[in-house]
Design a protein around this nucleic acid. Sequence first.
DNA 1: AACGTTCCTTGATCCAGGTCAAGCCGAGTT
DNA 2: AACTCGGCTTGACCTGGATCAAGGAACGTT
Lengths: 244, 244
Amino acid sequence: MSRFQILPDAAPSQSAELMPCAACDVRELSICSALRGPELDRIAALVSRSPVGAGQTLFQEGDEANAVYNIIEGAVRLFKLLPDGRRQITGFLFASDFIGLALKDRYAYSAEAITGTVVCRFPRVKLESLFEEMPRLENRLLRQASNELIAAQDQMLLLGRKTAVERLASFLMALAQRQGRAKTGDTVDLPMTRTDIADYLGLTIETVSRGFTRLRKDGLIETPDSHSAVLRDAEGLRALTESG
Amino acid sequence: MSRFQILPDAAPSQSAELMPCAACDVRELSICSALRGPELDRIAALVSRSPVGAGQTLFQEGDEANAVYNIIEGAVRLFKLLPDGRRQITGFLFASDFIGLALKDRYAYSAEAITGTVVCRFPRVKLESLFEEMPRLENRLLRQASNELIAAQDQMLLLGRKTAVERLASFLMALAQRQGRAKTGDTVDLPMTRTDIADYLGLTIETVSRGFTRLRKDGLIETPDSHSAVLRDAEGLRALTESG
DNA sequence: AACGTTCCTTGATCCAGGTCAAGCCGAGTT
DNA sequence: AACTCGGCTTGACCTGGATCAAGGAACGTT
């Protein structure tokens, strides 16, 4: 399930490129939107881009947290493990998302690329000092953290109190929202496997699979292939997310 | 289960007192530890203390979020409800804890006092402008948010992947930690009811009760009364929190 | 084209924890 | 001291989702 290829952490990968942030695809959507021209140049000198292959580990729970990341493209899973292998995925992250809000001196979770991914790596020591220089950055991170806390509480409600089908419906609608495709007829991208979804929703793979079948039979979705879902009845799905 | 006495939100309660922050019992432990002398005076002019009776509502999910709070003494539960009444408690807060990190313009959860509680109320509009003036405050809040995110992820692991007894052991040890009484022989305070614990751990009250009985029969705890637990074997409990 | 592999689905069975029901205990209250 | 009432425990039974098992579909790989 988990693979342990570990990326060189401190040394920039051979394929890393220095990138002018001004040309960054996700700048406007990411935390970097808090920065102005000269600040961007300052940042550009500190960050490095690197590709991360599907299934590769970005960092592991317990590692020294010496970098934070912005996802440029691709998808990443964050997760925690129990010693016997039980896994809880605490979040899926996509292009423009920021990794590293929740950390002390060590990472509290592991991060793996789901698909081929490109990240923008930022040394953490430099981040701290940068806050004084760029208070808008710190403010932006605080807002981001606030949003993530709200999302975390929604997830607790889901894990603690929702049924299997409600969890799946909630997951699909949240993903749809994130992709700006939450209306009936829209297609939602599912880059992760059924096992990932199960470990995110606190279920088994079989229950997730049966959930998809249920939603399909009830005319709420179609599943042209296992990595996409077409919303056949967005309202019906939404009703399930807050039903009882 | 939930009561709907609502505190006057904008108007300071008749029993509110203006308090010099310099004399505040929890200052050194709370976010106010980030503030220096003159800043404290500035803050003191903005905050007001008020008592909140056991069971009373501080604010409800969906309310306009026009204040944040510091808990001076007592205990508070934060929770979300599904329309049919299922409840998930997302956190228990105690003296020196800060309420209001996770918010947009509306509260994402409800807050009720568990016991008689005293809070320090802070108008939110003034908070925003204060950040520019006191960057150390913002920095402190970001750290706090980071810690809460880590705790939230632990809770997701608990809700998604742990058994009933593991959840209860994790809960007791986390509470013990927070109270600085996590060694064998120490007594942990449980101000909340079994129903609260159940709604926090994603279980029913009966399962929580059976969990206490199990831990008692296994010699891990004693329960002199329903609102306290003596740790008889802290190591055994800790083993349960990360066992498999 | 035959063969692995990985991922997904479906069916049959099982069980941890939910539900239902009864009773206990302690703190008010009259 | 009898009564209520909320909170807690325990027992008997039930069920949603886990587990176990089998097979199918979409891939590369040789």
